[in-house]
Design a binder for these strands. Structure first.
Length: 464
RNA sequence: GGCGGCAUAGCCAAGUGGUAAGGCGGAGGCCUGCAAAGCCUUUAUCCCCCGGUUCGAAUCCGGGUGCCGCCUCCA
């Protein structure tokens, strides 16, 4: 079997074959850094993280680029309302964004280009488009003329005529200086509300449109043609469609080979919204005491093209599932003698995991395979059939698969000496059949956040 | 109004023509001084509803209902 992805462009599952053997160029649309990202955003970033990790697991050398949109209407509005400089606002939320990525064990992309650092590249790109006759000017702004790109709509599978019909009644034509409401802006002429957010360029005083930044930065980092471009489904139209138009017209080459889009997240079955009270940033959830790994699990466990329902029941389930994997690893680590190898079982698990993931990143199926492995090995341990060699093999397998999931990291905390002393005291009480005393110690430790589990080889203590 | 996606047990969620993975939760049992962890059994005669195609459908087709997305710079 080979690695296959559903390509939004063709709506087919296609075997993944990178443009250059062994190497993958991957661009993912990142956040607009004017606020804290919410868990819906992070679902997309975790999907992209899973994709990148799996490509690497499969031996590809991945170059992952994620943009940061740091100039845009909402940011400018914030600056105008608060008087805070643009860079100050975006710097603060960029820092918060990276903290959140770390909390969720999302691997860093290889570069995070920010739009305002690529103004020169955007200007060059717009000039190229102008030379090739794809643009026009109106009131100091530069627009892309959609009628100059007949293939427009190939990604979203929408027809230009349908867009025009759809727009009727919804678009206030007074807001547009463009010749056609469907045309989009490449360069926005400065207006008074922009304050000191502008660049003096060959195209005049103003700022870039949103779509052009991704074309400019993606091509700068990955070349005119690259392998994978990701984002949320809402980006398909118009953002990614516009990127295709700009990039293809400028370079004359196919922009992206595979487009992968992530479905949205609902919370408790409803669209997240502040008025419903189900709108959450990562910080909101951490403040409720939910572990970041449980959030990662809840966000990753649904196939990326399926709408995912984030609920507190689901988070509780994720927390318990994580504990099961953690306990499994603790047990394996304690095996000191006896038993044999688990090479065959490990191979079955690894093969099953890969078969599922190869099929358009079927993470639910892959996790199912891991749990079947856990159950089988737990049973073998119960029967005393697992030795140090087998335990090491199983732990190595989980560590390997953890490179993909980021969910199996064993987080053990060394118990302080006073806790160990109490554990020892309890063991002595048990030996002398003073169970009241033993239970009293166990309850006290539980209250302090330490759980005791008795095993044939002694007591195990872990963070509750 | 146009385009598209989704609907599987209490919860999360795989499965796209051959008779319902997995996890959480619940119930019973084994183990344990008691627990915890683990193991075993059990928990959807059925996959939103109504028709149809087929020897056979959760899976295909038609209609309906509900939720979600896009159609103006929200992942």
């Amino acid at each position: 079997m080979s690695l296959r992805f559903l390509n939004t462009l063709t709506r087919q599952k296609e075997t993944f074959e990178p443009l250059q053997a062994g190497r993958v160029g991957m661009y993912t649309c990142g956040p607009t850094i004017y606020n804290y990202a919410h868990i819906g955003n992070f679902r997309a970033y975790i999907f992209e993280d899973l994709l990148r990790r799996y490509l690497e697991f499969r031996g590809f050398d991945v170059d992952h680029i994620m943009n940061l949109t740091d100039v845009e209407d909402k940011i400018i509005r914030t600056c105008r309302e608060t008087g805070e400089p643009l860079k100050s606002v975006t710097g603060r939320y960029a820092a918060a964004f990276f903290e959140d990525l770390d909390a969720l064990s999302i691997q860093r992309a290889h570069a995070y280009p920010a739009a305002t650092d690529y103004i020169a590249e955007m200007i060059e790109l717009i000039k190229t488009l102008r030379e090739k006759g794809h643009t026009y000017e109106a009131d100091g702004s530069v627009y892309f003329r959609l009628s100059s790109f007949p293939e427009y709509g190939q990604l979203s599978h929408m027809k230009l005529e349908e867009l025009r019909d759809g727009a009727s009644g919804r678009v206030d034509s007074d807001e547009y200086e463009s010749e056609d409401a469907r045309d989009f802006v490449l360069w926005k002429a400065w207006v008074e509300e922009d304050g000191d957010v502008f660049w003096e360029t060959e195209l005049g005083k103003g700022r870039p449109g949103w779509h052009i930044e991704c074309s400019a930065m993606a091509m700068k980092h990955l070349g005119p043609s690259f392998d994978i471009h990701c984002g949320g489904v809402d980006n398909i139209f118009p953002h990614h469609e516009n990127e295709i138009a700009q990039s293809t017209c400028a370079s004359g080459k196919t922009f992206v080979k595979y487009w992968l889009h992530c479905a949205h997240l609902v919370v408790e079955g409803k669209k997240m919204s502040k008025s419903l009270g189900n709108f959450y940033t990562l910080r909101d959830l951490l403040a409720k005491g939910i572990s970041p790994l449980a959030i990662r699990w809840a966000l990753i466990a649904t196939h990326y093209r399926q709408p995912s329902n984030f609920s507190f029941d689901a988070v509780e389930g994720a927390t318990q599932a994580l504990a099961r994997i953690q306990d499994f690893q603790r047990r394996l680590k304690e095996i000191k003698s006896g038993g044999g190898s688990l090479a065959d079982r490990c191979q079955v698990c690894r093969d099953g995991f890969i078969a599922a993931m190869d099929d358009d990143l079927n993470i639910s199926g892959a996790l199912g395979v891991v749990f079947e492995f856990v159950r089988d090995v737990n049973k073998l341990m119960e029967e005393g059939k697992v030795g140090p060699e087998g335990a090491a093999e199983a732990l190595a397998l989980l560590a390997s698969l953890n490179q993909v999931t980021g969910l199996f990291t064993l987080r053990d905390e060394e118990a302080p000496q006073e806790v160990l002393d109490q554990v020892q005291a309890r063991q002595e009480a048990r030996r002398s059949k003073d169970f009241a005393r033993a239970d009293q110690i166990r309850d006290a430790l539980a209250a302090a956040g330490w759980a005791i589990e008795d095993t044939p080889d002694g007591a195990r203590v872990k963070r509750a």
